[in-house]
C-alpha cells in the first residue's frame, strides 16, 4: 500500500460532543500497530472534500444547535455522500450525524431538519431522554457503548439495523433495533467511544476499507485486545 490510509473526520468542530474523537484515535492506532501509515483529514462546514478520497469517514454527535449549524452543509454534500456510499467508502456516523444520515430529524419543538436519506429512517425528537450503558448483539459480536439521545429513530421495513439491543434503549426504546447499515455506511447511537471498546467492530471497518482499496480480503494481523475486552466487560456490567 503506497498512499497513506485516510481517515476523514467530518464536522470535528461541531459534531464531537462526547468522546467521538476516540473513534478516530482507535482507527489510527489499530492501523499503525499493523504498520499502515494513516493520515487524518478534518472536514468542517464549507471545506472542499471528495469523500471517495477517504478510506473511512467518521462523524459524531452534537448539540441541537450544532446539528442545525451543519445541516445545510450536509445537504449540500448529499450527492457526494451517496456517490461515496455506492463506491463502498466506509462511513461511521454516531448519534447526531446518524440521525441526519436518515431522511429527517423532527426536533422536540416540531421544526424539521432535513437529512440526506442514506438510511431509510426518520427521527422524531422528544419524550424521555434515553441515557445509559447499552449492549447490542451485532454480526461483529456484542457492541458496548453509552447512549444519550432524545431522538427516536424509526427504520423503514427492510432497512438493516446494526444489531439488536440486549440492554439499553437503542434506536427508539421499542423496536429493539440499534443503528442502521447500508453497504459500508454505519449509523449508531453508541458513544463510549464506540470503537476503542469494540475492537472487532473497529477491525471490521478497517477490513472493509482495505478490501475496497485492494479488491481482495486483507490479512489483518491479530492484536492483543485484552485491555479492550476488559473495558467492554466492565462497561457492560455497569448500570
Amino acid at each position: 500500500m503506497t498512499a497513506p490510509f485516510v481517515v476523514a473526520h467530518l464536522y470535528r468542530r461541531r459534531m464531537n460532543i462526547y468522546g467521538d474523537t476516540g473513534n478516530v484515535t482507535a482507527l489510527c492506532r489499530r492501523l499503525e500497530w499493523r504498520g499502515v501509515a494513516v493520515r487524518v483529514v478534518s472536514i468542517d462546514e464549507g471545506d472542499r472534500f471528495e469523500f471517495e478520497e477517504a478510506d473511512i469517514v467518521v462523524a459524531g454527535g452534537g448539540e441541537d444547535s450544532s446539528q442545525l449549524a451543519i445541516a445545510d452543509d450536509l445537504v449540500s454534500r448529499s450527492e457526494a455522500v451517496h456517490r461515496a456510499v455506492r463506491a463502498g467508502v466506509v462511513f461511521l456516523t454516531v448519534c447526531g450525524t446518524y440521525q441526519l444520515f436518515g431522511r429527517r430529524f423532527v426536533t422536540t419543538d416540531g421544526s424539521e431538519i432535513p437529512g440526506i436519506a442514506v438510511f431509510a429512517a426518520d427521527t422524531i425528537g422528544g419524550g424521555r431522554r434515553m441515557i445509559g450503558n447499552v449492549v447490542v448483539d451485532s454480526p461483529w459480536g456484542s457492541l458496548v457503548g453509552f447512549e444519550n439521545h432524545s431522538g427516536r429513530t424509526r427504520l423503514d421495513p427492510g432497512q438493516a439495523s446494526l444489531g439488536r439491543v440486549r440492554r439499553g434503549f437503542g434506536n427508539d426504546d421499542t423496536s429493539g433495533f440499534e443503528g442502521a447499515v447500508v453497504g459500508n455506511c454505519f449509523g449508531t447511537y453508541l458513544h463510549g467511544s464506540v470503537l476503542p471498546k469494540n475492537p472487532g467492530f473497529a477491525d471490521e471497518l478497517i477490513r472493509r476499507a482495505l478490501r475496497r482499496r485492494t479488491g481482495t480480503d486483507p490479512d489483518l494481523a491479530p492484536l492483543d485486545d485484552a485491555v479492550e475486552e476488559r473495558a467492554a466487560a466492565v462497561a457492560a456490567s455497569r448500570p
Binding site: 464531537n16 468522546g19 467521538d20 474523537t21 441515557i131 450503558n133 463510549g192 476503542p196 455497569r238
Partner: peptide, 9 residues
C-alpha cells in the same frame, strides 16, 4: 457522570 466518553476528549 455515568458516561466515561469524556476521557477520549
Amino acid at each position: 457522570g455515568r458516561d466515561v466518553s469524556w476521557l477520549w476528549d
